[in-house]
């Protein structure tokens, strides 16, 4: 065997050191956990890239969560985008159930992988902590679209819509609404809601359906898109002339086309920690200052308690099971 000497030895040592250092850094985050809560920095997982509603409202909420948690612990955000939310949800779901890892979800869309049997998580088992807001969807038509009313849309040979895949809540809502109302629709997928909305402004697609907070600048401020109806029980103050979907004869769609932004912890969170979290979450989401900020950003606050959260998860799974065939047909 050759003896390693001189410069070669130096190279060898440097390489080994580098490898050891890398491994050390990679394992560092697996620090030992203690049973008390909160005893260290809390990780808040967001399964999307920075920017966008889930990220923005989470960042808005975090100072208030800190305020109401005992000992005002540090909370850091981990953006874990990818795999249509599955990477981020798994990161939260598989973390140690000690209250130091929580994550935001997109409901009902995140129940879809579970209903289709593609998920490695069971939302019924997760520990639900609270909800941030209730997202109201608006359907808007392009200024250049040939169709202006519900009747025209129903009689149209083909309506084109701009979506972000069918696994997003917005995409699902479009499919379900079109199916229910009997509108023949062609879906043009985009890689982000902004691209889809822009396609509507350009006139490449007729129909876009997004949260009011997302569409507000295009339908109220610049009037690049025409709002035709909103999916809520009562009209939205900023667009008083736009009817609700219930007024147009589809009250059932109000509960189908909507989105919630709940936050959950891994399954098996000890009861005392769960109560601490739920209590803090309830207080934070009811904080008048936080709600004022939400409303300023055109969101509708909707704090939730244990029972409502459980019902919400159950309702989401039931809804998607009901429409499973329709969704599979469009997914190919």
């Amino acid at each position: 065997m050759a003896i390693i000497t001189g410069k070669k030895w130096l190279k060898f040592m440097c390489l080994s050191l580098a490898i050891i250092a890398s491994i050390w850094i990679l394992t560092m985050s697996e620090a030992t956990a203690q049973s008390t809560f909160p005893s260290k920095t809390i990780t808040y997982v967001i399964p999307t890239s920075p920017g966008g509603g889930f990220d923005t409202f989470s960042r808005m909420l975090i100072p208030y969560l800190r305020k109401y948690l005992p000992g005002n612990p540090n909370i850091i955000i981990k953006n874990a985008p990818g795999g249509e939310w599955k990477i981020g949800i798994n990161k939260m779901y598989r973390a140690k159930p000690d209250g130091h890892t929580i994550g935001i979800l997109n409901m009902p869309a995140n129940a879809l992988p579970q209903v289709l049997g593609e998920a490695k998580y069971d939302l019924r088992k997760a520990t639900w902590l609270g909800n941030i807001d209730d997202v109201t969807y608006v359907t808007a038509l392009s200024l250049k679209s040939k169709y202006k009313t519900l009747e025209e849309l129903k009689n149209a040979p083909m309506v084109t819509s701009g979506t972000v895949g069918l696994a997003s809540t917005a995409g699902l809502g479009t499919v379900l609404a079109a199916e229910r109302m009997g509108i023949k629709m062609k879906y043009i997928p985009h890689s982000g809601s902004t691209e889809a909305i822009l396609a509507g402004i350009r006139g490449d697609v007729d129909w876009v359906q997004y949260p009011f907070s997302t569409l507000k600048k295009s339908i109220v401020d610049s009037k690049d898109l025409i709002p035709v109806w909103v999916y809520s029980k009562k009209r939205i103050d900023q667009i008083p002339n736009v009817p609700t979907i219930a007024e147009l004869g589809y009250p059932d769609l109000v509960n189908v086309v909507k989105m919630l932004r709940p936050v959950a912890a891994p399954p098996g969170l000890p009861d005392d920690i769960r109560r601490t979290w739920q209590d803090a979450f309830w207080k934070a989401t009811n904080d008048p200052e936080f709600q004022k900020k939400q409303i300023a950003a055109n969101a509708s606050p909707l704090p939730m308690k244990q029972q409502e959260l459980d019902d919400m998860v159950e309702a989401a799974i039931k809804l998607l099971e009901q429409y499973k065939e329709v969704i599979l047909k469009h997914r190919k």
Binding site: S49, P50, T194, L198
Partner: peptide
């Protein structure tokens, strides 16, 4: 349009 032209802009 309030539409980001790049990822940095989105954030």
């Amino acid at each position: 349009f309030g539409i980001p032209g790049s990822l940095e802009m989105a954030v």
